[in-house]
Design a protein around this nucleic acid. Sequence first.
DNA 1: TTTCCATTTGACCACTCGGTCAACATCCTG
DNA 2: CAGGATGTTGACCGAGTGGTCAAATGGAAA
Lengths: 209, 209
Amino acid sequence: MESVEVESGSFEEPTNERARALLDAAEELLEELGMEALTARAVAERAGVAKGLVFYYFGSTHELFERVLERYYARHKASLAEAFAGEGDHRERLHRVVDEYLDFMEENVTYARIVQHQIASEGPHLPLVRRHLREVLELTREMLRGITPSRGPRSAEHFHVSLSAVVINYFTYGPVLLDDALEDRPLGERRAHVHWVVDSWLDGLERHR
Amino acid sequence: MESVEVESGSFEEPTNERARALLDAAEELLEELGMEALTARAVAERAGVAKGLVFYYFGSTHELFERVLERYYARHKASLAEAFAGEGDHRERLHRVVDEYLDFMEENVTYARIVQHQIASEGPHLPLVRRHLREVLELTREMLRGITPSRGPRSAEHFHVSLSAVVINYFTYGPVLLDDALEDRPLGERRAHVHWVVDSWLDGLERHR
DNA sequence: TTTCCATTTGACCACTCGGTCAACATCCTG
DNA sequence: CAGGATGTTGACCGAGTGGTCAAATGGAAA
């Protein structure tokens, strides 16, 4: 046997023990030292294994990185699915999605960083990022159906970009502007802010009808 | 004589012809090929000059990059200064700032990319980026004085992060989600969206008073 | 003309990277 | 036990990087 299978679409944890160790090591390095530290040598050393195994199981560092990305995405999608389930009018549902989105980001700041990094640098993983971002856009589109016009400046696409911007950028720009942005109290304050923002939009949309 | 002087704070175009050629070449490479392409060799070749001159005039590629960044920042500040000047109530002024901000981004998408890249990757130029971003925050803070509470979820800091997120992210995330995001018609639509968003916030703030 | 020094060059160095591969280890099966 | 398949190693390679520096250049002053 050789190399971990990659079925486009869903993500599956590697059954192989070593492959999994490498994947875990890669994710840890990403969390602790950032994207530049993710070299074949470093990952292998972290996993306590020879460098050659990275290529034996994943073929290239590119592929390894994509697997890590897909793992994050799987979690993100699971998180969103949870939020989209359940009842309530659209205002309630939207607030629930926002809460879930914020919860996820609080526990996966690195994910936000990676995505923003790839997008900003038009990195080699942009195609993968694009595919997943479009999936998420589709979910938002569905949720906002009937609330927003189907085209124009108040379309779902624009609100999707704006909402995800307001959520994500706090976790990347926040720590640059504020010293304690990622501590409990400021995070709670931000959460209140985002909910307020969403309400102001919904109010505006209703009034505009 | 040697190496271009760097006074922290303001930016001055290098008087020396070669230094300026290198700086221009660096900026062009950044625009055309992205950040990874910015190597000492590439810049020198582009400027039609030997590699050694990069280090003769700038000391290191790091310094060269910072000079390019500072040049962008100088333009950004000039653009903002223009927007902040002039009269009108706060709603008018805010809309004028938004327009200026969007104008600037339309013509400096690369700038948005660089900043977001540095922030997302906690790159080596983060200290410089931080210094300038905080300056801009200070301007926003001043403009919103009296409109927003001084603390809490509706403070100027939160609106600053949200507004800049809504503006900037369209230029980075937009092209990933939409195929024609940076063409004239979609850009105009986005502009209308941002103005609508600002109005919804101002309405919300007034109603909440 | 001679001298001097800022300027300019590009070969060179040390280093790190991704990736290859022959050799070796381990294990399962006939 | 024998032997082939599977898994594992790390020395090695080529490419590309930032940075150094002795040597060449050239213009201005004496």
